[in-house]
Design a protein around this nucleic acid. Structure first.
Lengths: 212, 212, 212, 212
DNA sequence: TATGAATGAGAGTTCATTCAT
DNA sequence: CATGAATGAACTCTCATTCAT
């Protein structure tokens, strides 16, 4: 039972670092310290191995997110917990966002990712829709909010390599991650405030007025 | 000179559709209608061909963004134009975001992407910093704002495949793109309002008070 | 003891259907419902398994042919019985002729087939030689007669696939097999008549004269 | 243009000696003195290479047989020429009968062989039918005669390995081939005499009577 | 007897690249 | 500029076989 997991660990790493195509079964075998043929004994094909890695991720992610959503409290609090849970998951599974980013853009594996992402997206959009019925239609349409916040969360991780050179420190260090979380909370608050106030233009007007 | 461009067009398409690794020189040659060896005559290697494609994109993108930024008006207006220009560019160059998404996650081509993205990120962050000096430090740190808005913009395009199944219509149709632009304007207004008010917690408090 | 026989049955079928090389131990194990490693427990190797299958066939075939030959009566009658017995055996063991045909053409298993076929051929040739001493030398040399009649018998079975498309009915149905047997009797009669008359040219001349 | 033919020659030899499955592309490349990848440059796959070899054979064989059939003279003479031409072809293309024998028994390549053999069989049967209308029905049905004579011809070649040990000399030497040809002529004469006399039982009766 | 796991060897195939013309 | 031919390297995958249990 040990070899199978070693293969999964190695595949996770190499798929994340190099992408599905560039990662070779030979190297996966080397890293996991098993015979090349054993990969095909435990997994029918390289594709099947990829699916196993991905399915494992989404299974764990769904668990984590469900738990966050099921927590008691107001929608705003639960959404905050959801965001935190997502960020924590990404920071603890650094290959995951790389894999998703790569393979979700196009190509033969996009469907497998879609199959996992769509329910998540739908759940998120439905949640927003239910909690903030006023978002119906227009610029605050639930799926727009959903995509935007998803983008805000994951982009920080997928572009952490670019950021590193930009800000001169490891963007995934504990300190920086805490800073990012604060930013996300601020963004979430901003958006929820706005949608709670219904018409966003109106909300903005109010904000401006209150400044005077 | 015609062959060279045909190769670039074909490479652009196939790199976008399949990714660098999965796209083969044979298919690029087939699609562009030239001999396989001719690719290596015009471009030293497959890597060099990729760079040519990418450099072409960023050259055009920089042109477009510079023009938007150089327009007269208040920072808010210029930023709005910047966003619009970016969205227009992505909607007119659909392979571009796929390519960037894939190759920026990791691997041997990430540096080449970073080399282009970093100046852009830095420019954006500096711009925000200059226009809104209060963002210094904390949750509204310029680079956080920069990454977040970048994510909001590009995620819609890179996940358009997932969205298609979710919302049941082509997310890249003219109508849906217009809707997305409205959403982006709303988001931008939201954020700029907040940073203009300095301390975000304060800003939120003001908003809440104004509701009563 | 049951597993061993199940393996033999499956191997017989797959060797017949696909040939020795294309048949895999994995599939043999699957078809026989046993573990792959068990094949190597009961049979030292895939080659040994093939030999076991083949030896079983020739053991049964020799039994059948010996019984036919040992029957009382004139050589012509005994030869007829021999032919019938052979045809019956082939029609009841359809994989057999496929296996022999494939593996007797060449390659590493031809010797194993030769080892069984040679005694049979020799026996057949000696029988003809003894019964019809005039066949010595020339066109009616015993081994020529032997090979020819062997070819007449087995070719119908080995090419039954081709024939099916040709005559539009199953060449191995009861009815067609009966028809084939009649043909074989006719051919046998023809040949034996001729060799009994010694010089074949003479025999033919006689036939022609009798027509007038 | 030379490499392609060298590959074909090597493939012919190895397919004949070892069979399709046992022959490897590596060895074919070695024997033909070309790079392994070149085989896939000239032929799409190992299967396609096999087809090229086979198609070449049947193309040449059809040419040879057509010429023999088109010669002037009575049916008996033309049939004799046909048999001679077939035997000559087999003796000059020793791998051919091995390949046909192996791959026509069963498996994925049987259809490709059938596609070539069926027209030949049909042509032969039609020829017999036309020349000897009395063969209609019963033991002398044209396709029975066709299969039998086909078997008589090819079996000598496909079982030449077995025969060698039996008769103690090379069955494919010039001398032995001449002997075989005489035998085939004798057999052909025998059969044609019989079918010319209509009912075979009658014919045999006549022969017997004439002996007294 | 029986089996899940493991392995070395090698299969066919594809790749980016080079070269002679 | 352009191309058909050629190549070394590496790919995924399957094979018969072995071994510990």
């Amino acid at each position: 039972m040990k070899a199978r997991e070693q293969i999964l660990v190695a595949a996770d790493r190499l798929f994340g670092e190099q992408g599905f195509d560039a990662a070779t079964t030979r190297e996966i075998a080397e890293v996991s310290g098993v015979n090349k043929a054993l990969i095909h004994y435990h997994f029918k094909s390289k594709d099947a191995l990829f699916e196993a890695v991905l399915d494992g991720y989404y299974q764990r992610l769904n668990l984590v997110l469900s738990k966050a959503l099921a927590s008691p409290g107001a929608p705003r609090q639960r959404l905050t917990k959801l965001v935190d849970a997502y960020v924590d998951f990404l920071s603890q599974n650094r290959n995951f966002s790389k894999i998703v980013q790569r393979e979700s853009s196009n190509g033969p594996r996009v469907d497998r990712i879609s199959g996992h992402l769509e329910p998540m997206f739908k759940m998120g959009a439905d949640l927003i829709q239910a909690a903030y019925p006023k978002t119906k239609g227009g610029a605050t349409e639930a799926h727009h909010l959903m995509v935007s916040f998803y983008g805000i969360i994951v982009t920080y991780f997928t572009y952490s390599g670019v950021l590193e050179n930009l800000v001169g420190k490891d963007p995934l260090s504990k300190k920086e991650l805490a800073s990012r979380k604060k930013h996300l909370h601020w963004m979430l608050g901003l958006i929820l405030d706005a949608v709670e106030n219904g018409d966003p233009a109106l909300a903005r007007a109010r904000v401006k007025k209150s400044k005077t």
